[in-house]
Design a protein around this nucleic acid. Structure first.
Ligand SMILES: [Zn+2]
Ligand SMILES: [Zn+2]
Length: 286
DNA sequence: ATAATCGGACGATCAATAAC
DNA sequence: TTATTGATCGTCCGATTATT
């Protein structure tokens, strides 16, 4: 039963941000300032008008020139539903989004196709010390902007002395674990917020792993304790002391009135349509 | 106001290549 | 053989559009 705790600094940030995020809808987004066209590039700030929260748990007081942000974390394989909808998935199966839409049964991981081999690449750039430093350093004027992200000192691994965990990366839970959600009262958006309290993980309750009971839990939100996401959850979340054991995932959110059921309205693209598949850098060129 | 769509930025992966 | 590069493939942010 892993319990990851962290600094109160971040808890504070989170409690603050969730109230602001309440208005977010399908923009279950999180700070990604470099690609946002209308959100600011500020660090640890909040854009109230757009609803975009900029939270960068790694404060960079000294380097004021470069906005520092942690990397966006991706799951290895999104489920097919999330994949089609271009929405954030998670490592658990069923994923939270499918649970929310009541399509747990259809939540299966997508398949990655094998990378093609035998593609020639041409010469790499030289690898002596200097070139290397240059290529890895943003100081290089020619370096792509993208590389600038890595300018900051490498983020220490979790077991490093610092308890600080990136909120941006916090969603990376081991399979079978769910992070806690903001209290439903705050999380009125349909899609799950991308920023989760990163510090309290709870093991997937066995009941959730059973399809039958899972379904019941969705159908009947007023279910057995540990199968539902009830006032108990809210209470715990609001409590200064978090108990990792009695919290189940918010399954009952799938039955919230505003949520439409997969098959009628689910925001996943029809597989047969000619619409684009929402993917990739097809446009990108050398 | 809320939900769905989807363009494209960003992240992760891993074969090709370079260095040892 | 190991280390590094960098193209490919994938995720999903977030603006736009559609629906209620
Ligand atoms: Zn999913
Ligand atoms: Zn799913």
């Amino acid at each position: 039963m892993p319990i990851y705790v962290s600094s109160s600094f971040h808890l504070l940030l989170f409690s603050l941000s969730f109230s602001l995020m309440a208005s977010l809808d399908t923009n279950d987004s999180h700070p990604d300032s470099s690609r946002s066209t209308q959100s600011s590039l500020t660090i640890q700030s909040t854009s109230l008008s757009s609803g975009t929260i900029h939270m960068y748990p790694f404060p960079s007081p000294s380097t004021s020139s470069q906005p520092q942000r942690s990397k966006r974390r991706q799951v290895k394989n999104a489920c097919t539903n999330c994949q089609k909808a271009c929405k954030k998935c998670d490592d658990a199966r069923p994923c939270l989004r499918c649970v929310r839409y009541g399509v747990q049964e259809a939540c299966v991981s997508s398949q990655r196709k094998e990378r093609k081999k035998g593609v020639k690449r041409g010469p790499y750039k030289k690898r002596d010390g200097k070139d290397r430093a240059a290529s890895m350093n943003t100081n290089h004027p020619e370096a792509p902007l993208q590389q600038g992200v890595h300018t900051a000192p490498p983020i220490p691994p979790p077991l490093a002395s610092s308890p600080v965990v990136s909120s941006y990366m916090s969603f990376g839970l081991p399979t079978g674990y769910y992070s806690h959600f903001p209290p439903p009262a705050l999380a009125k958006s349909v899609e799950a917020p991308s920023i989760y309290p990163p510090y309290i993980f709870t093991h997937l309750p066995p009941t959730v792993q059973s399809p039958q009971i899972r379904q019941e839990a969705v159908i009947n939100p007023t279910c057995v304790p540990h199968q539902c996401y009830s006032a108990a959850f809210v209470a715990q979340f609001n409590s200064p002391v978090y108990s990792p054991y009695s919290i189940a995932r918010p399954d009952n959110q799938a039955t919230l009135p505003n949520y439409t059921v997969y098959g009628s309205h689910l925001s996943a693209r029809q597989s047969g349509t000619s619409s684009s598949d929402c993917g990739g850098d097809l446009h990108r060129s050398g």
